[in-house]
Amino acid sequence: MPENVSALQLVLAGDPALYAIVRLSLIVSLSAVLLAALVGLPFGAWLALSRFRGREGAIVILNALMGLPPVVVGLLVFLLLSRSGPLGSWGILFTPQAMIVAQTILIAPIIAALARQTIEDLWLEYRDELQAMNVGTLGSVVTLLWDGRFSLLTALLAGFGRAAAEVGAVIIVGGNIDGFTRTMTTAIALETSKGDLPLAIGLGMILIVIVVLVNAAAWGTRRFGERMAG
């Protein structure tokens, strides 16, 4: 990015470097949300329906994992993906894929834990009817996920918010490489360290605006969907 300009000027001028950063942030965080949802939603639904010894403990642990420190996840993924680590042959350290992996691990517990709560509430409502229709566990999970989809958007949003806002994990596994793995948050960290506080704050405001826009879109979808599906 050019020096000595405010973030607002960059936005207005359509600065390609800035847009590349915003685009990468969205790709990484949305991919992480998608992957975390593929794992977290079925797992949360399964936990909501299952009854086994130690289930309460599993729920407590899952809820606690929502607070996983990004730096710890980053370090863990770093050690896994390092050329000297067990998955070093993948060669994806310091790439966007590594960032997606780290953020997926970071937010899968958030999505799973919130989905578990949502699905469990819905299950209490639906259980009798589904049993009366002889719907098995797998079929019930699919039905609950589908019928709870608009409420589950909230869980996905929480995951997205966390992913888009975190810096600790992506900076470690992505390396904050200019034009390649630099996201909104790592750019903010960098500008802060360079003492360019106005640019850092400007980037922060852009990040907030994006998160608000994504939330608004999701909220609109939810409202529309609830009206259509009851």
């Binding site: 639906y126 009798d128 009817e129 009366a132 039905t143 599906a229 009851g230």
Partner: peptide, 14 residues
């Protein structure tokens, strides 16, 4: 065998 509960719960669809 089928049952209709006192307060039937409809799925969130048409």
């Amino acid at each position: 065998r089928a049952i209709v509960f006192q307060r039937p719960v409809m799925l969130r669809r048409s």
